[in-house]
């Protein structure tokens, strides 16, 4: 394929897959330091997009722009356009609380609240008013836990503390918690880096299942993981996207020298 052909195919893919997030020229400054230097990237529905790159390359920063978690850092400043279904998330009219309900997030370290498993799941639906009766909440808890593949393990002890679970279970609880508000996009910031290989496999399986209903963006250190779970991959380096495209293409036939060096382990 020539470059022109690739570009054409990408554009056709975009339209066919119905773009969820369309970001152009995203810059992020932490004080005087420029952490992202103009990133253009599209995130598609029903796909897993993996963001890879050496640490400090800006992939987590980019992820945190999508649900405006950078707002919680006092010194952070974001410019550029980040469109969710065509509407700029940094528009003043956009409500950040609603945005975060539509764009869920799972963190690097499992962070269940120090409450019961049940209360962890219903936290989001409760604050957003997604249900009102006990039956409705029960239903949400059951479905979310089932979707996160945790139901069978915890259905008998929904009242025990979320922190009493093992690390892998905690992370799946956090995923269930994110699902409970039925978001459209799930952002995952290295969700498996604190887990052992078996728990990691479970979560990866789960991510693959979730793809059916959500657009998923995952930041990962592990190139094997990116290759296993994602359909598209973007390679970040020093605040820029070096290359993005189909995961298979990126891993088998990268166009850029830097991508090849990174994938083959020459740096990172």
């Amino acid at each position: 394929m020539t470059e022109a052909q690739v570009e054409m195919k990408t554009r056709m893919d975009n339209e066919a897959n119905n773009v969820k997030f369309s970001t152009r020229g995203v810059h992020v400054f932490y004080g005087d330091k420029e952490a992202l230097k103009g990133v253009d990237l599209d995130i598609n529905n029903n796909e897993v997009t993996a963001l890879i790159g050496p640490s400090g390359c800006g992939k987590s920063t980019y992820l945190r722009c999508l649900n405006r978690m950078n707002d919680t850092v006092d010194s952070a400043r974001v410019t550029g356009s980040i469109l969710l279904d065509g509407a700029d998330v940094y528009d003043r009219k956009v409500d950040v609380v609603q945005l975060r309900a539509r764009v869920g997030m799972v963190f690097q370290k499992p962070n269940p609240f120090p409450k019961s498993i049940y209360d962890n799941i219903v936290y989001g639906p409760r604050i957003h008013g997604l249900a009102s009766t006990k039956t409705e909440f029960d239903e949400i808890v059951e479905t979310s836990l089932k979707k996160a593949g945790l139901w069978n393990e915890v259905k008998d002890r929904l009242d025990s503390g979320g922190t009493s679970l093992s690390g892998g279970q905690q992370q799946r609880l956090c995923i269930a918690r994110a699902i409970a508000v039925s978001p459209e996009v799930i952002l995952m910031d290295e969700p498996c880096s604190a887990l052992d290989p078996i728990a990691t496999a479970r979560v990866e399986e789960l991510i693959d299942e979730l793809r059916e209903n959500y657009a998923i963006v995952i930041v990962t250190h592990s190139m094997q993981q990116a290759a296993r779970v994602s359909q598209r991959t973007a390679f970040f380096h020093i605040g820029e996207i070096v290359e993005h495209g189909n995961t298979e293409q990126i891993f088998t036939n990268p166009r850029e020298e830097r991508t090849r060096d990174y994938i083959t382990g020459r740096f990172g």
């Binding site: 919680t72 609603q98 945005l99 963190f107 609240f113 936290y123 604050i127 918690r177 994110a178």
Partner: peptide, 12 residues
């Protein structure tokens, strides 16, 4: 992380 978790759920 707990605070981030809650904010990321869309809590005020």
């Amino acid at each position: 992380s707990l605070k981030d978790g809650s904010l990321a759920m869309g809590a005020t």
